[in-house]
Nucleic acid binder design. Structure first.
Length: 323
DNA sequence: TACTGCAGCATTGTCTGTGT
DNA sequence: ACACAGACAATGCTGCAGTA
């Protein structure tokens, strides 16, 4: 408590230049005598604070004094400031804490670097809310209190009870052993185990959460990056994968390739297009990938894919024919 | 093991003195 | 008159020993 107040006191003096004990006492909600003792403690600790006695007097710091609260060098502090501009912290309900921490980091920098760091947070924007065409970037929304509870369980190593609404399913309560939280672009995932089996939960689908008193069953140390890669690999190799044949215009080849899990064969056709054999996560992905390329691609097999695309195209043609 | 009492310490507020 | 500084007392917390 007192340590916090000493830090606040230094920041107040830095901010206002000179303040009387009475004014500091009001700001810190303690008596003036306590403020005077805090000043004394700071002075004993080597903080160059001096008193100006008499009317219009007060306490002030020697010019140029820096609060070395963080021990960070310029680049480290700058990296934090830049990272602090991301909206990622919002996903964990830590936005206000991050803003407060950033102020302290900037304040702790040497005078010559402070403008650079403060400017960095204004001149570098990472992941804004909309792209250049004003299209909103859809982010996973999660109530702060739910995010805070998930985070609490993850960090304390306790079991977590969540109300989770899987895709197209009603919400259900389930107890899990949390391992960590991963954010990918604007989506967050909770990595956990449930009854010994790996589970990955999308944060936006967690409707309520409660950290339980029991310790979670989890490895003492975890390589979250490795764990995430293993799960994404498992996800990509599981499910109802489909392999299709298609021909695509060379200018749209990359778009098709990016949406596929794998490309097995690829050869040019006599008409200058490319013939590919590809695997997709499921039927829905395959259909979507071909449909978005419109006339620049053609599904050759299997028959169900051709039939689906034909039906959609016919409906679209009919709609425009009506007018 | 849990509870109680005590000493020591840190923190805080009030009153009064001193300097400008 | 205003603001800082010293002396003293009150309060609350912590650690430790003793006891049921």
């Amino acid at each position: 408590m007192r340590a916090d107040r000493l830090v606040s006191l230094v920041l107040l003096l830095r901010q206002h230049g000179q303040l009387s004990a009475v004014r500091l006492a009001q700001e810190l909600e303690v008596s003036t005598r306590t403020v005077l003792r805090d000043i004394e403690a700071l002075s004993a600790a080597g903080v160059p604070v001096y008193a100006e006695r008499g009317r219009y007097g007060g306490f002030a710091l020697l010019p140029g004094f820096q609060t070395q609260l963080t021990g960070l060098n310029h680049d480290e502090a700058l990296a934090l400031v830049v990272a602090g501009s991301r909206r990622g912290a919002q996903a964990f309900g830590l936005g206000s804490a991050l803003a407060s921490a950033m102020l302290k980091v900037i304040d702790a920098l040497p005078e010559s670097y402070r403008d650079t760091a403060a400017g960095a947070s204004q001149r570098l924007l990472i992941d804004p809310a909309a792209d250049l065409l004003a299209r909103p970037i859809y982010t996973d929304e999660m109530p702060d209190e739910v995010a805070a509870e998930v985070l609490r369980a993850v960090l304390s190593g306790n079991k977590l009870r969540i109300q989770y609404a899987a895709f197209n399913k009603p919400p259900e309560w389930r107890d899990v052993d949390p391992i960590g939280v991963v954010t990918v672009r604007d989506q967050g995932y909770l990595l956990a185990t449930r009854e010994g089996s790996d589970r990955t939960y999308r944060l936006s689908r967690i409707q309520a959460a409660e950290a339980l008193p029991d310790a979670a069953e989890r490895p003492h140390r975890v390589d979250l990056d490795k764990a995430w890669q293993e799960r994404t690999t498992k996800f990509r190799t599981g499910g109802d994968q489909v392999t299709i044949e298609a021909r695509v215009h060379p200018t749209r080849r990359e778009e098709l390739a990016r949406t596929a899990l794998a490309i097995h064969t690829e050869r040019p056709t006599p008409d200058g297009w490319l013939h590919l054999e590809l695997t997709f996560q499921d039927r829905r992905h395959a259909e979507w990938a071909l449909w978005q390329l419109a006339t620049h691609a053609e599904a050759l097999s299997p028959d169900w894919l051709r039939a689906t695309l034909q039906t959609k195209a016919a409906k679209l043609a009919a709609r425009y024919a009506e007018s």
